[in-house]
Simulated assay, not measured.
Amino acid sequence: MVVGKADLHNHTTASDGTMSPATVVARAKAAGLAAIAITDHDTMAGVEEAMAEGSKLGLIVVPGVELSTVADGRDIHILAYYPDCQDNKWQERLAGLRATRGKRNEMIVERLVQLGIAATMEEVEQIAAEQMRAGGGTSKGKTIGRPHIAELLIRKGVVATMAEAFDRYLAEGGAAYVNPPRLHPFEALEWIREAGGTSVVAHPGLYGRDDLVEQLIQKGVQGIEVYHSDHGPEEEHRNAELARRHGLIMTGGSDFHGERQGKVFHGEIGSRTVDLAVLDQLSNKR
């Protein structure tokens, strides 16, 4: 039996992480992991580099992506594992999600300007490019997200920390929060199925909507991310029981985004893991 631990939720410079795919893989190897999944937001641009580094270091790299969806005005993220990266329709759909994400970024910046904060998308794009170069990443297929806007707010002295930027402006309820129409999670499940992947509800404990998770289960989602850096013991227990009751795969991961201002977001690589056997479950459910 193959043994070891896997961290199945990690971000790189291909989206809003601060470290290149190769660096993230090397960090996972140094942490003693046997496998890691690369799950950037709405892009698989970092997977090829990560898999190449994994081959060199003897670490399994699971190809994945975290899809941005909205249901009842609430952000719901769906993880896809092992989709066919060569599927043109799948890649076109991911490009469409990135375009919607770009529109959302523009709307946030417009809201900031209305609040009297001098900000432009050009400045946000410059920060994203700087972080990409610093992390050694690639710009092809890269996504820009709220952490890049948060960094701009810090540089302008509007806020002192990333957490303050989200609390005051960017998170749900914040002064500049916007949520335009986006892909519905039910449709995301169908996209993942058509691309030959396995679907998992990301960090369900953050939504406060167990009814939505139940609806996703009824629509055929194949797994639940039980273990996550922002889940406490209560969330882990509740979602583990839910997964057991419905015979779903129980996954877990750190949701590592790298370091900003010397602080790791959301958790360090390897801080939340599952047994390597879960990879077989994800692969067999395809």
Rank of each mutant, 00 (worst) to 15 (best):
H11Q: 14
T12D: 13
S15A: 12
D16V: 05
G17N: 08
G17W: 01
S20N: 09
S20A: 15
A22K: 01
A22Y: 01
T23I: 13
T23D: 11
V25W: 00
R27P: 05
A28L: 11
A28E: 10
K29F: 09
A31F: 02
A34L: 02
A37Q: 05
I38F: 09
T43N: 09
M44W: 02
A45Q: 06
V47G: 11
E48L: 15
A52C: 08
G54Y: 04
L57N: 03
L57G: 06
L59A: 05
V61W: 04
V62L: 12
G64D: 10
E66T: 07
S68Q: 02
S68E: 03
G73M: 07
R74Q: 07
R74V: 11
I78C: 09
I78Q: 12
Y81I: 15
D84K: 11
C85G: 13
D87H: 07
K89S: 11
W90V: 13
Q91D: 12
A95W: 03
R98W: 04
R101K: 12
G102T: 07
K103A: 14
R104E: 13
R104P: 11
R104V: 13
R104H: 12
N105Q: 07
E106Q: 10
E106D: 08
E106V: 10
M107C: 13
I108S: 09
V109I: 05
E110L: 10
R111V: 14
L112D: 05
L112Y: 01
V113K: 12
Q114G: 14
Q114S: 12
L115F: 06
L115M: 08
G116H: 00
T120L: 14
E122I: 13
E122C: 10
E125S: 11
E125R: 03
Q126N: 05
E130W: 00
M132L: 08
M132H: 01
R133H: 04
A134T: 03
G135W: 00
G136P: 00
G137H: 00
T138V: 11
T138F: 04
S139L: 09
S139K: 05
K140R: 06
G141T: 02
K142M: 15
K142H: 04
I144F: 03
G145Y: 00
G145M: 02
P147M: 09
P147A: 15
A150Y: 01
A150Q: 03
A150L: 06
E151N: 08
